[in-house]
């Protein structure tokens, strides 16, 4: 059982507010902008694989008044699994990591990620690392019903959503240069960084 990506992202969109910064990465950075726009959205492409969680952690530590949601893929996370340990060690209670687990490197054509072969359960992984909240969802309705409670629970949070590959039409999006988008984010955050 798995969820369409757009359906999996919907509960996050419905519950984000003006004190929530959403960082998308890789596949989700292509889908999210076609579903919603907000001054506190940052689509981290082009990026370094696995870079979104540390980037989000840095903002979370800087801005405890905001809830930071990082949406990343399982392929990216697998390249930087230690970043989950760093998040817990840094006690970033205002950070939520959402893993879209589709088992493939979607952007490069659908090759299998080793974590799928190994049957990694990110919810269990998160619990073993020490995330106060760590959950996995495969079913749309269960995720939709649980989302509000999970997002309001003690952080940092790790949420794994088992999803289907995105539609080919979702894999193309036109965005401004990332340095421009980062400068816009800095304006929204009222910081002088770019």
């Amino acid at each position: 059982m798995s969820m369409p990506v757009r359906v999996a992202l919907q509960p996050l969109m419905e519950r984000r507010d003006d004190s929530t910064l959403v960082i998308t990465h890789q596949g989700s950075a292509r889908v999210w902008p076609s579903m919603a726009q907000h001054a506190l959205d940052f689509h981290y492409n082009p990026s370094t694989m696995g870079g979104a969680i540390p980037f989000g952690l840095g903002i979370a530590l800087s801005r405890p008044d905001l809830h930071i949601i990082v949406v990343t893929g399982d392929g990216s996370l697998a390249m930087n699994l230690g970043s989950l340990v760093t998040v817990v060690a840094a006690q970033a209670s205002n950070l939520t990591v959402v893993v879209l687990d589709n088992g493939i490197y979607e952007v490069t054509g659908g090759q299998t990620v080793a974590t799928r072969v190994a049957r990694v359960d990110y919810g269990l992984l998160g619990k073993s690392i020490g995330f106060p909240t760590a959950s996995s969802f495969k079913d749309c309705q269960l995720w939709s019903e649980a989302a509000a409670g999970v997002l309001a629970s003690t952080g940092p949070r790790l949420i794994s959503l088992v999803v289907e590959p995105a539609l080919p039409s979702d894999m193309h999006v036109e965005l401004e240069a990332i340095s421009y988008r980062l400068a816009e984010l800095a304006k929204a955050l009222k910081t002088e960084c770019a």
């Binding site: 370094t48 696995g50 870079g51 979104a52 540390p54 980037f55 989000g56 952690l57 840095g58 903002i59 979370a60 530590l61 800087s62 801005r63 930087n80 230690g82 970043s83 340990v85 760093t86 060690a89 840094a90 980062l182 984010l185 800095a186 955050l189 910081t191 002088e192 960084c193 770019a194």
Partner: peptide, 24 residues
């Protein structure tokens, strides 16, 4: 000073980027 221990050097650069973006 706040000491942030990362597990791998590849985390350090985007973490620093996030801190700069947040005004640190």
């Amino acid at each position: 000073l706040h000491l942030l221990r990362v597990c791998r050097e590849g985390e350090a650069w985007p973490l620093a980027a996030g801190l700069i973006t947040g005004g640190q």
